[in-house]
């Protein structure tokens, strides 16, 4: 892949990168820091990516790692119970789904993002998250159950 094609491919993944960041980081600044650092690493390693079709998973895996790094640092900035919990949903988001997704435990949430939002297969998500496929299928089963139950409850109210 040429550098230009690589740049284009990255730009094509902006929405996916945004969703992955959003699922893991509450502040705009953190999301932007994460994507900057991930892009730097991806750029440095771009020549090692031989299968163009694997770019998305490869890029998101790097990004998820960066989000984890920032989360870890943030935990030291302030005790978690004093970090503002609820973020206002973006204006174009479905506020109910937004809150439901954010209420999922993080491991279920990021798995749900990869499968439900990014359309990855279990094998692809397992590769991105570096966990066995069985773990992904278990997480997605739980996430689906929680979302479905809460969605139905929310609609009954």
């Amino acid at each position: 892949m040429t550098d230009q094609a690589f740049e284009r491919a990255i730009v094509d993944q902006i929405q996916a990168m945004y969703r992955v960041c959003y699922a893991q980081l509450r502040s705009h600044a953190d999301r932007e820091d994460a994507v900057q650092e991930a892009l730097k690493k991806a750029w440095e390693k771009r020549k090692s990516l031989k299968d163009d079709g694997a770019l998305k998973g490869w890029l998101l895996r790097i990004l998820i790692n960066e989000c984890h790094n920032i989360q870890r640092k943030n935990k030291r900035m302030a005790p978690s119970e004093y970090i503002p919990a609820g973020a206002l949903p973006p204006p174009d988001a479905d506020s109910t789904l937004h809150d439901l997704m954010l209420s999922l435990p993080e491991k279920l949430r990021i798995t749900a993002v990869l499968i439900f939002m990014e359309g990855m297969t279990i094998a692809q998500a397992a590769s991105v998250l570096r966990v066995p496929q069985g773990t992904v299928s278990s997480r997605i089963h739980k996430a689906r159950h929680i979302l479905k139950t809460q969605w139905e409850e929310a609609n009954r109210e």
């Binding site: 929405q15 174009d92 988001a93 937004h98 439901l100 439900f116």
Partner: peptide, 11 residues
Amino acid sequence: MMDVSRAFGRA
């Protein structure tokens, strides 16, 4: 259920 992909909106 509703389309989960809209949960976070667009970048």
